[in-house]
Amino acid sequence: MTLRRLVHCALALTVAFAGLAALYLNLGAEFAGLAQLLVYVGAIAILIVFAILLTPTPAGKSGLPATRSAETELDKVFSPAGVAGGVLALAVFAVLAWAVMTSGVARVTAAGSGPAPASSMRAIGFALMERYVLPLEVIALMLTAAMIGAVILALRDRRVVPAETAAGRSPELRG
């Protein structure tokens, strides 16, 4: 999160998602781990890399950001607002860690000793098709709506820009 270049941030984020997927697999949740691997490492990382590719910073028009822009970005991180955000995040972590360590979770030893709950693909399929069929339909509808919405959002300006270029030059190109 504090790396200078955006692509390095995206790669670190991908590594973090992959590590989280490994943690899921280690905890016995195979389906969630594989879904995490497919969705986050496979799809969201690609989406973020493409978004970075399609939104170059003004100082980095040549593809590589200049060192000056990186320095100003780092100065922005260490600006008073950035320091305040970091301190706030540290405070949140301190409160959460204190809550975890002082709750009964850190002392109960019998909780983690049992076997992993049964989570075979067959059981997940039965549960999805029987008990959770309504959430499944709702999530399918929501994914469809989100996909259509994303396509419309991404297409709307593209329909405007060719009209401008057909009328002459777009203002960005002229300026």
Binding site: A29, F31, A32, A35, Q36, V39, Y40, A43, I44, L47, I48, F50, A51, P117, A118, S119, A123, I124, F126, A127, L128, E130, R131, Y132, P135, I139, M142, L143, A146, M147, G149, A150, V151, L153, A154
Partner: peptide
């Protein structure tokens, strides 16, 4: 199926996060 509640919640949450990321990046 009560055993799988947490797992199901995570799966649906991953789907919601995917939709949110797609719309957010758009």
């Amino acid at each position: 199926p009560e055993e799988l509640t947490g797992l199901m919640f995570v799966i649906f949450s991953i789907a919601v996060a995917a939709a949110e990321a797609a719309v957010g990046l758009a």
